[in-house]
């Protein structure tokens, strides 16, 4: 018995790692590289100082939001939990379209103030809150815009089809960073009222993602058999009813993975807002690192915010997996 247990791993190693001279060289090389990486990682970890995280935790979470108003951030954190639990209890699609806009509106109100709450300029917003806020608002705006563009591109009216196609192809042909710069510089020129810097950034993200979403949704629309809309029309449903009850529920379900993938990349893309003096996670990380007492702590800080980005993206992709299972 004993010999068997000890011999098995040895045999496995012989069979898989050292079976040819070529594989032997490869194995030794890999072990050497891994050893070097791990040993330097450990020596870095042993010298790392995590005070930069613990002392700035508030900045990482909410940026420079005034201390006296911090309860508003707490209230904001509760809203997604409330919405999620209501949606779990009431499994009706109609609730999505009421609760989510309502939730986002109250989050914006709590953060910004007005209607009885003291105003807090968006330049004081920051950290994880700002990252989530920018991602959520531009997702919520990009979805309807993308849906309209997808439908527009399939429209029978040449003008609408033309405009949608030009928009989609134009935006898809530009880098996101370029669109964000254009939103900062050019939106004030064409919009008659003053737009906040954060709002301009959010609109830039929205315009960019709407074009990609439109293409995702369009692929779902195209994959439905023609017979579905024919059956709906032959029952007397008009084109809007056909879309609402027959086409969209099926098409959107088909493209859930692609749409969530798009939202994940949107979430990560918010890190570009750091370039526009917005202090979301990446921006606040850069500003913390520029303080004299924390200079050189890049490793700790970027590892920490990297972990936060990863947690949210991983959570989203798990969520999309469950959605797929539930709707199939």
């Amino acid at each position: 018995m004993n010999t068997k247990i000890t011999i098995k791993p040895v045999r496995w190693v012989q069979k898989n790692l050292f079976n040819t001279p070529y594989n032997t060289v490869l194995t030794i090389l890999c072990v050497w590289v891994l050893w070097n990486i791990l040993s330097s990682l450990f020596s870095w970890l042993s010298q790392s100082e995590w005070a930069v995280i613990s002392e700035n935790l508030r900045l990482f979470l909410v940026g420079r939001f005034p201390e006296s108003q911090l309860w508003r951030m707490g209230a904001i954190a509760l809203i997604p939990i409330l919405i999620a639990s209501t949606l779990v209890v009431r499994r009706s699609q109609a609730w999505n379209f009421v609760l989510i806009p309502l939730g986002l509106a109250s989050i914006t109100w709590l953060a910004n103030g007005g209607f009885g709450l003291p105003l807090i300029r968006s330049s004081l917003w920051g950290g994880l809150f700002l990252t989530l806020f920018a991602a959520a608002i531009s997702t919520a705006l990009a979805f309807p815009l993308g849906l309209l563009l997808a439908l527009g591109r399939r429209s029978e009216l040449p003008v609408i089809r033309g405009i949608s196609t030009i928009y989609i192809e134009l935006v898809r042909g530009l880098p996101l960073i370029g669109i964000l710069f254009m939103a900062q510089v050019m939106l004030p020129l064409v919009v008659p009222f003053r737009l906040d810097r954060l709002l301009r950034a959010i609109l830039g993200l929205t315009f960019f993602n709407a074009a990609y979403l439109a293409e995702n949704i369009r692929s779902g629309l195209q994959s439905l058999p023609l017979g579905q809309s024919e059956a709906a029309r032959s029952l007397g449903l008009n084109s809007i009813q056909t879309l609402r009850f027959i086409i969209l529920p099926q098409a959107l379900r088909l493209v859930i993975p692609a749409i969530v993938g798009q939202f994940i990349s949107l979430f990560k893309d918010t890190s570009l807002l750091a370039l526009f003096a917005l202090f979301e996670l990446t921006g606040i990380a850069r500003s913390i690192l520029s303080q004299p007492q924390f200079i050189g702590r890049n490793g700790e800080v970027y590892l920490f915010i990297g972990l936060i980005y990863w947690m949210f993206c991983f959570g989203l992709s798990q969520f999309s997996k469950r959605l797929e299972v539930r709707s199939s």
Partner: peptide
């Protein structure tokens, strides 16, 4: 067209039921 579609029922070769 809408009025006529209400008055005329149709059954297809591929059934075309709504799977969702």
């Amino acid at each position: 067209i809408d009025q006529i579609r209400r008055d005329v029922g149709m059954v297809f070769q591929q059934f075309n039921l709504f799977p969702h």
